[in-house]
Nucleic acid binder design. Structure first.
Lengths: 199, 199, 199, 199
DNA sequence: GCATAACCGAGACGGTACGTCATGTCTTCTC
DNA sequence: GAGAAGACATGACGTACCGTCTCGGTTATGC
């Protein structure tokens, strides 16, 4: 009884070094400055070892995302039951995170990679937008159960726009004033329509 | 009396050819495939003529944006007075626009360029997000005047998130279901909070 | 009764396959195209099995020579007693052999290998020039005994230049006209000096 | 009035640097150690500048030969009228030259290059064997005119074997004893046939 | 009869060089 | 003096081999 596979086994050490080097270089210098040559040199690895396992620098980035070498500590909303403040607090934390130029730069680098390469974009969604979306939906549904959010609210759409609001600003190199965060939460919870029905 | 400048004057024809070639290539093959060599060849122009007037390919893209060689027909909300349907119609038009893979690809290429280069990002904001933001703010203010939007609504934040909601999806290669558009409009106008005030 | 060595014994099959593959590839594509990777693949053998027994591709070639995997059927002069025609016939046979482009290519490949590597050159001499030299010397000495060759002739030098004449042409990609062969034999036997002594 | 060609003109300095670097590296380390990368680095030149003008390292070597960057001071026979001593002296000078290991190594490197590449072999013949052959033929013909060489001597064949005799030894890493040189001259001039005519 | 040892094929490893392509600069000729 | 052409140094691209090392598996010996 054998495995059928022969030859030297893949070096986990090399794999880790490549992903770490990629994450470091991406955060430090952005997507365009990233090159397979530099990844290999930084990782102390032969260039062929990168190409043996990944088809391009984008593919390495995709695996970095998948394995949490970047964006590892995802910021998700707490679930205290108070949906409005949970969402507000989460939004503020995310804005804080992106206020750090390092994080903003990494984020833009990932956006550039995602723009060029479908796989990165899928992985980015899988690891970032997706979980965030799920967490926000849960948070809002908890709010519905608590009677804090109306039960016919278009929950997925709301989650979508909460994420998009932050991303837009990050990609456009625009610092987000905290007032905006409160405005977003206010608009979403209270609505902007005049209180016509009260009559 | 002269201008004091001697020699051959800058060729407007060359400038136009360069910007047109850039816009064409960017839409056709994305940012990473774009090269100064290719721009010059496509434009029938010497490479030095590009470098004489622009510092990099990003700078050419920035000027393409500024001069409307890309994203020329900006989609802005109509102003019929019915803010809710104006915003809804605009959002639907924008989603339609980005549904065309060509437009989505161009958009992602611009996002990639903006991620790498501050000037492109500024120009992109100036020509796209900015005017859109202004138009949306005006549209919402008209809604306030018409008594359709509550007068303390956080108008700029609302405009922001409307734009961000669309961008997020476009960059993430996610087709936007039309139901989402309606949900976004619903959430923003009616709010998601339970009708606690009625008590 | 044993050797005292333990472990699996060297595979004669692998050795043969390696030498055969080397001879084939060398004749087919020349020295520079030859690679250990290709030898191993062609032989159906692990690369390490080549390196375990030979230090380089040159060493494999050297053993090919030693074991007759290339240049196996050495062309030597017959010894009929008529030294002049024996030498002429041998030279013609050698020229015929090198007229075949396959043989000429193999010969040049060996020369290239010998240029780079002392061991190959030694082996090449041992298996080719050496025996040829010996055979020619014997042939000429027989001619002396038969009174056909003057007894103070510089026999080794003559053997040398007979071999060199052919090699020079082979390495220089020059087809050898048969007239040249006769000229060589004529010059060596009759000399080129004017018959001054006869006066 | 102009040539009609536009664009920067080819840098003669770069060309010279490349050929010099090639000649230096070839003499110092042999053909197999020679690489386009190293040529470019040594010459202080971009790799593309090598590939723009030459198709391979062999082609650079061929041009080195053509332009006299290697084997520049060709050793040719003097023409004092005494053909026998002219040829003897030339042969001794050539043997001296190849006695220097540097020269022998360069020679073998050229032979290796010629083995791999037809163009190099042609150029090598053109610059080395060819002129030598011509000079020897002239030298022998002068001998004929001076009544020192028989007028029906197969002059080209003799020239051929004189060159081949030296080359064979050089390529085979065999030091040439000076006695051999005298033997060669003796054999060629006096012939090896027994003096049957005297009867 | 079971451990030990040296072999086998396979194939991943850190590297060097390949030949191509793009960058941004510089030079030459033309308009 | 601007523009088209195109050579320049630089450096990344992805591929092919280099020579080494590490696997699982296969014979042999010798305890």
């Amino acid at each position: 009884m054998t495995t059928g596979r022969r030859g030297r086994v893949r070096s986990e050490e090399a794999r880790r070094a490549i992903l770490e080097a990629t994450a470091t270089l991406l955060a430090a210098s952005g997507y365009e400055q990233l090159s397979v040559d530099r990844i290999a040199t930084t990782a102390g690895v032969g260039k062929q070892t990168v190409y043996r396992w990944w088809s391009s620098k984008s593919a390495v980035i995709a695996e970095c995302l998948l394995d949490g070498y970047v964006l590892s500590d995802l910021i998700v909303p707490a679930k205290t039951g108070d949906a409005r403040s949970d969402v507000g607090n989460w939004l503020r934390a995310l804005v804080d995170f992106l206020d750090d130029p390092k994080n903003a730069a990494l984020f833009r680098a990932l956006a550039a990679a995602a723009s060029e390469n479908r796989e990165v974009s899928d992985r980015l969604y899988e690891r970032f937008s997706g979980p965030l979306h799920t967490a926000l939906v849960e948070c809002l549904r908890a709010g519905i159960r608590a009677g804090q959010v109306r039960d016919d609210a278009p929950v997925p759409a709301v989650a979508d726009i909460l994420i998009g609001a932050v991303l837009h600003r990050a990609l456009a190199h625009i610092a987000i004033p905290l007032g905006t965060v409160d405005g977003v939460v206010d608009a979403l919870f209270s609505g902007v329509a005049a209180a016509a029905r009260e009559d």
